[in-house]
């Protein structure tokens, strides 16, 4: 554990709770892509199946359970409890376009040809692109509410901080995980355009609007 990873994890947890709290307090899922949230739930379920046979630390176990339960709760709020407020008309990104390539990549790049390792690789690749339905939705509606922007900023920062963590671990422990690093870089690049808009608009008190 180093400071970069800790900050990355804090940012990740913060993102998850910002989203849950926003939906709960406004009693609305407007502007949130249910499809992205389903993809994140698949990511956590596929990656954290090792909960049952591999113990890293209490910290890891608690975080894994937290991400699985929070993402399931988010999907439940969007598709069941506040279904009437969910903006399904604008949430039209075809998720098979990210599910199928992630699965294919997992069969090509993995650390061993076992079910759990394939699931782990699949989850790493899928996580990199799971935000696409949400970014697509923001582009389609042309704007995002400020709290949604804060959510996206925290979620994007998490993987960017992990990149610093990987650089640090490479020099201090010789640790190098090519699959996570490559996917993590792609994941962070996908947020760059949003980061720019966030800094130039949201942080200056304006609403995030995308030019057509």
């Amino acid at each position: 554990m180093n400071l970069f990873r800790l900050m990355g994890d804090v940012s990740h947890v913060l993102a998850v709770f910002i989203l849950l709290a926003k939906i709960w307090r406004t009693r609305s899922a407007a502007g949130i892509s249910g499809r992205s949230q389903i993809l994140f739930t698949i990511v956590y379920l596929a990656r954290y199946m090792d909960l049952f046979f591999s113990f890293i630390s209490l910290y890891n176990t608690v975080m894994k359970l937290l991400f699985i339960s929070a993402s399931c709760a988010t999907v439940y709020l969007i598709y069941f409890k506040f279904r009437a407020t969910y903006d399904g008309n604008h949430d039209t990104f075809r998720i098979e376009f990210v599910l199928v390539p992630s699965l294919l990549l997992a069969f090509i790049f993995h650390y061993s040809m076992s079910f759990f390792e394939l699931a782990w690789s699949f989850s790493i690749f899928l996580e990199a692109v799971a935000i696409l339905p949400q970014l697509f939705m923001v582009t389609k509606t042309g704007e995002a509410e400020n709290i949604t922007s804060h959510y996206l900023f925290a979620l994007g920062s998490y993987r960017a901080l992990y990149i610093l963590n990987w650089i640090y671990r490479y020099y201090t422990e010789g640790h190098f995980d090519p699959i996570a690093v490559c996917a993590g870089i792609v994941q962070t690049i996908l947020y760059c355009d949003f980061f720019y808009l966030y800094v130039t608009k949201v942080l200056q008190g304006r609403k995030l609007q995308v030019l057509p």
Binding site: R5, D50, S54, I56, F67, Y111, Y162, G174, F176, D177
Partner: peptide, 10 residues
């Protein structure tokens, strides 16, 4: 360290 035995990150 190149190929990991356990995934210790989240």
């Amino acid at each position: 360290h190149y190929v990991r035995a356990a995934h210790d990150e989240l």
